[in-house]
């Protein structure tokens, strides 16, 4: 499996994805000056901009790399030459997944360093009222990375059943959008006040979706990082467990489906 991970990483780097990211990362240089437009919270704004930029880059990567990785292998018929080697399909799939996950981690780490430098600069130029919680900032980045790794799992699962890249790409984007609001929708339909307004069907549909779709709102620690609020360690552990469980489900299902997939 390690060879597959290596090949995956090599492929991403050779496709100049990293250079593209670095080009986008140049934007970090502008963050301190852009943030100085804010009247009362320069540092907070720099943190916001940094986190949003990293999040955006990771989202693009997870959706496009995750959705096209397997699809490209099948479309370009690489699978014929690779799946026929003495490697199980599950190993191949997991190798791909861990390769992509590793790439996200590397990217997030590099971007995090850039972001921390930009924020440090902002702190030096405009000392904030509240000290910046560097730990919370790193945690926010870590959980954002986990969130997008989980999204890669969604994309891989969808590409094991799809013959085109439409389903994986759009499906992953939809899952991402939905995952941010399932919590609110769930709470909304389940409160007593909406009992009359929400039909039972809608209510059960929302419940099913709530348990089926990934709940990525829990990985969002941006507020903690921006306003220096200590995150709840217990909650973080549960979120981490949730990440592991959900990712295992995604990968297990993807491996089962990929195993049954016919390479035409």
């Amino acid at each position: 499996m390690t060879s597959i991970i290596q090949i995956t990483l090599k492929g991403i780097f050779r496709d100049r994805v990293f250079q593209g990211i670095m080009a986008l990362a140049v934007l970090f240089l502008f963050i301190p000056s852009a943030a100085s437009l804010s009247m009362r919270q320069v540092v907070e704004t720099s943190i916001t901009l940094s986190l949003s930029l990293i999040s955006f880059i990771l989202l693009l990567l997870s959706v496009f790399l995750g959705a096209t990785s397997l699809w490209k292998d099948m479309e370009r018929r690489y699978t014929f030459s690779v799946i026929s080697l003495p490697v199980s399909r599950s190993s191949y799939l997991l190798g791909r997944f861990f390769g992509l996950a590793l790439f996200l981690v590397i990217t997030a780490a590099v971007l995090a360093v850039a972001a921390l430098l930009a924020i440090k600069f902002a702190v030096l130029m405009y000392p904030p009222d509240r000290p910046v919680l560097w730990g919370a900032l790193v945690l926010a980045l870590l959980f954002a990375t986990l969130k997008y790794i989980l999204l890669v799992g969604v994309a891989l699962l969808l590409s094991t059943v799809s013959t085109s890249f439409f389903l994986p790409i759009f499906g992953t984007i939809c899952a991402f959008l939905a995952s941010g609001i399932t919590q609110q929708v769930y709470e909304y339909v389940h409160m007593p006040a909406s009992a009359n307004a929400v039909s039972p069907f809608l209510k059960s549909a929302a419940t099913v979706l709530y348990y089926l779709l990934p709940n990525l709102a829990g990985f969002d620690l941006n507020v903690n990082a921006i306003y220096g609020i200590q995150p709840n360690p217990n909650g973080l552990m549960i979120t981490l467990g949730y990440f592991l469980a959900y990712t295992s489900i995604l990968l297990g299902a993807a491996a089962l489906l990929f195993d049954r997939r016919e390479m035409q």
Binding site: S90, Q183, Y210, Y211, N215, A217, G218, N232, N234, G235, I238, T239, G241, Y242, L244, A245, Y246, T247, S248, I249, L250, L251, G252, A253, A255, L256, D259
Partner: peptide, 23 residues
């Protein structure tokens, strides 16, 4: 893969209610 799926499902069902209440 099946084992992975099962482990995932079991831990998911164990974790989902603490997670939901945390959320």
């Amino acid at each position: 893969p099946l084992a992975l799926l099962m482990v995932g499902l079991v831990s998911y069902s164990l974790l989902i209610s603490p997670f939901a209440s945390y959320m």
